[in-house]
Design a protein around this nucleic acid. Structure first.
Lengths: 194, 194, 194, 194
DNA sequence: CATGAATGAGGCTTCATTCAT
DNA sequence: TATGAATGAAGCCTCATTCAT
C-alpha cells in the first residue's frame, strides 16, 4: 500500500460531486481528478461507477444513523430529540449544499440496470432511519408528548419536514424564516385549535 | 394544427418516459419510438433534449395549476380546498407512478449545462404554485381556520406533505394508511394539545 | 438511406483488417477508417465487434461454399473436383494474403465471452464444408477413383492439405514448389507402393 | 537458482493459460495468480508480455525438438519414426487440449508491434522442425521406403497431418476414428493404386 | 414538414507496465 | 529480489444532434 486511505479519499471526492451534480453528470474522471488519483485507481476500490455511488450513499447513511443514535441515547424529551435531529441534519445538508441522502428516495422510480442495484440498498437504509425515528415518536406518544398517530408515517413525514426546511432556503426570499418555523408546523399543525 | 398535434404527441410520450426513467435514462430515440415519429422530427419541435424536458415539466405544471385554480374558485372552506388539492394530486401522481413535478425540485442542486437551463423555469413554476397555495392558506388564516404562520412556508410544507403521502406507498407496508393520515398530521401536528 | 451498401463496405474493410491483424489487433476505429465511415455507423449495422467478426467469417464461408457448390455441379471426375477446389481456394487465400476461414478452426479452444459466440457458428460452417467435400470423396470411392477411407476424415484432411499448400509459400524458400505438389502428396501418399 | 525456479514457475503457468485462452485473453495478472507470484515479479524475468509469450513458445518447441531428436536416434525405420513422432505429439496436444505450437504458424499474418517480435522466432523454430523431419523423410527416400518427393514440403505436410489428427477430435462425431487413420492417409494417399 | 442514416464527442472500463517499499 | 498499488493509454460503445433526401 503506497498511499493510504485512498478508498476514503475517493469517497470523499465522490460525495461532493455526486451531491452537487448527481450520478449522471458526475464522471469517473471528475472524481479521479478531485481525489487526485488516476482514473484506473478508482476501479481498484470499486467495481464500477454504480458501486461507487452505492458506497457513497451508504457512507452518507452511516453518518446520518450515527447522528441519530447518538441523539437517541441522550437524556432528552422526545420533542427535543426530534428538534436536535432536525437541527443537526439541516446543518449537515446545508454544509454539503445537498439533501443528498433524502434525494435518494426519489430514485424510487428510476429504472434500468444501474438503479436497480441502488434501489434495494437505499430502501433498507431508509427503512432503518424510519424505524429509529418511529421509535422516538412512539416513546413520545407513550409519554403523552405526542398525539396517537401512526409512528412510521409520522417518521416519514418528519424526514420530509427536514427536507422542507432545506428547500425553504431556496424558496423563501431573504431566508428570513426562523430556522425552526418548519418544525413548529410539524409539531403544531396548520389548524387553529378549538 | 398538424404541428400542434405532433408536438402534443411527443410531449405525451415524453411525459411517461421521463416520469418512469428520468432525464438521463430516457433517450430521444425512446421518445420518438413511443410517439411514433422519426427522431429528427422531435428536433423540429424542440431545440434539444433539455428543451423537451422543460416543455414536459411546463406541461405538468400547467395541468397542475389548472387543477389548483379550478379548486380555488369553488365554494369551499380553506381546509377543504387543501384537502381537495391533495386528493386530486395524489391520484394524479399515483396514476403516473411518479411524483414527477415535485421531484423536479430536487434538481435544484444539479448543475452543468443541462440543468442550468431547467432550473430557472422550475423555480418560476414552483413559485407560482407556492403563491397560489399561500393565498389559500392566507385566506384560511384570515378566516381563523388556520393559525398565524408564514403562508409561503406553509405552502412549501404542504407540497412536501403531498410528496410524503406519495412516498408512504413505498414505505408503509400494506398501504393500510388511510389516505388522509398524512394530511391529518399536516393539519393537526404531532403534539398533544394542552 | 443516404449511402448505400454501407454494410457491405464495412464488411469488406473488416475482412481485410481481420485477415491481416486478427480480431484483437483490429480496432473498430481501424475498420471505420478503412470503410470511410464514422465509428458509430458500424454499430448501426452490427451489434458489437464480435458480431461484426462473425458476419465477416460468415461472408467468407458463404463465398467459399458457393465456389464448392459450383464446382460440385460441373462434369468432372472426383479427382478433378478436388483439384479444382484446391486451386481456386489457394488463389483466393493468396489474394487475401490470408487463410482466414481456415484459421478460424484454431479458435476452437479460445474461451471467454467473445469467442464463445463465434465458436458455434464456425463449427456449423466447417461442418457444412466437410460434408460437401466428404460427398465428393464418397463419390470418388464409389467410382473406384479413391481408396476406401473414412470420407469425413479425408475431407478434413483435404482442408488441411489446402492449408499446407498455402503455408508452403512461407516455408519453401523460393516458392519453387510446383503448385500442386502438396495435392499430389494428398492423392498418392508418401509411401512407395509395393 | 531461486531465479531459475521462479522463471520456470511463470512459464509453466503461462503455458497452460496461453494454450487455453490465447495471447489476448490471457492477462499478466492471470499468469501471476496461477504462478503464485506478484505481477511485478513477472517483469523481473521477462521484459514484457510478448517476451513472455515468446519464451513460452520457445519452451514448447524445445520440448518438441527433444522428442524428435530422441526418436531420431532410435533404431527405427523412417515410417516408424514418423509414426512415433505423430503418436507422441498428438498425445502431447491432447494433454494440453491445444495444438498450441502448431497454431503459432497461423500467426504468420498477424501484424503490429506485438506479433512482429514473435514471428521471426517461430519461423526459425518451425524451420528447425521441418529440417529435422525432412531429414527423416530424406532417409526414407534413400531407403526406398518413401517415394521421391520434396522432403521439406513433405515435412510441412506431415506437421499438418498431425494437426488434422488433433482436429479430428472435434469434427469426427464419436471420435470413432482409429488414431492412425490420418497417418494412414498421409502414408498411402487418397487414390486407388493402379 | 418528416425522415432516419450518419456522425463523433465523450463516457466507462481494462490491463500492461512502473516504482516506492 | 519480490511485491502489488497506482498509473493512464487505449478500446468499445452510446446517444444527442445533424442533414440529405
Amino acid at each position: 500500500m503506497r498511499r493510504k486511505n485512498l478508498r476514503k479519499k475517493i469517497i470523499d471526492a465522490a460525495i461532493k460531486l455526486f451531491a452537487k451534480k448527481g450520478f449522471y453528470e458526475t464522471t469517473v474522471d471528475d472524481i479521479a481528478k478531485a481525489a487526485k488519483i488516476a482514473k484506473g485507481t478508482a476501479y481498484l476500490y470499486f467495481k464500477d461507477k454504480p458501486s461507487l455511488y452505492i458506497s457513497v450513499i451508504e457512507e452518507h447513511f452511516v453518518t446520518a444513523m450515527e447522528y441519530l443514535q447518538k441523539i437517541h441515547k441522550e437524556d432528552l424529551t422526545s420533542t427535543e430529540m426530534l428538534q436536535r435531529t432536525a437541527d443537526e441534519w439541516i446543518n449537515y445538508m446545508v454544509k454539503f449544499k445537498s439533501s443528498f441522502p433524502m434525494f435518494s428516495i426519489e430514485n424510487i422510480n428510476l429504472t434500468r440496470r444501474i438503479m436497480k442495484a441502488i434501489k434495494p440498498i437505499i430502501f433498507i437504509r431508509i427503512e432503518e432511519m424510519i424505524t429509529l425515528i418511529a421509535q422516538i415518536i412512539e416513546d413520545g406518544i407513550k409519554k403523552k408528548e405526542f398525539r396517537k398517530v401512526n409512528p412510521r408515517l409520522a417518521a416519514l413525514y418528519f424526514l420530509n419536514t427536514i427536507r422542507t426546511g432545506f428547500f425553504a432556503q431556496f424558496f423563501m426570499p431573504g431566508m428570513s424564516v426562523e430556522k425552526n418555523a418548519t418544525l413548529e408546523l410539524f409539531f403544531n399543525g396548520l389548524k387553529k385549535r378549538r
